Amino acid sequence: QEELVKAFKALLKEEKFSSQGEIVAALQEQGFDNINQSKVSRMLTKFGAVRTRNAKMEMVYCLPAELGV
């Protein structure tokens, strides 16, 4: 569980995922086979993730800066 949270936060820091499906796929690539869209959705809510525009003006998920991840 701890490893999943770390990987999840690291992915969001990249600010390149525009959908929950993309986050699920990226986590599965890292070996988290039991991850699915509903789990990702709950984690996004739990950590207060928001959708914002990145440098390329794409809408992407990211974590609020005050979490200091």
Rank of each mutant, 00 (worst) to 15 (best):
Q1S: 13
E3F: 11
E3S: 13
E3I: 08
L4S: 01
L4T: 03
L4K: 01
L4G: 01
V5Q: 08
K6W: 09
A7K: 06
A7R: 06
A7T: 05
A7E: 03
A7Q: 06
F8Q: 00
F8W: 01
K9N: 05
K9D: 03
K13P: 01
K13Y: 11
K13H: 09
K13D: 06
E14G: 06
E15G: 08
E15A: 13
K16G: 05
K16N: 05
K16D: 03
K16A: 08
F17I: 04
S19Y: 09
Q20D: 07
G21R: 14
G21C: 05
G21E: 15
G21V: 12
E22L: 06
I23V: 03
I23Q: 00
V24W: 04
V24Q: 05
A26K: 08
A26S: 05
L27S: 00
Q28R: 14
E29C: 06
Q30D: 04
Q30M: 14
Q30S: 07
G31T: 01
G31S: 02
F32M: 02
D33N: 12
N34A: 10
I35K: 00
Q37G: 09
V40A: 02
V40Q: 00
S41D: 14
R42W: 13
R42H: 13
M43T: 00
M43P: 00
M43I: 04
M43G: 00
T45F: 10
T45C: 07
K46M: 14
K46E: 15
F47M: 10
F47I: 12
F47Q: 04
G48W: 03
R51D: 03
R51L: 15
T52Y: 09
T52Q: 14
T52F: 07
T52W: 05
R53S: 07
R53E: 08
N54K: 03
N54L: 03
A55W: 04
A55M: 06
K56W: 07
K56C: 03
K56A: 13
K56P: 02
K56Q: 12
K56I: 06
M57Q: 12
M57G: 15
M57A: 10
M57P: 03
M57F: 10
V60W: 03
V60S: 03
V60M: 03
V60C: 03
V60F: 04
Y61R: 02
Y61F: 07
L63A: 04
L63C: 12
L63H: 02
P64T: 05
P64Y: 04
P64S: 05
P64H: 04
A65E: 15
E66T: 07
E66A: 09
E66F: 08
G68Q: 12
G68V: 11
G68L: 09
V69C: 10
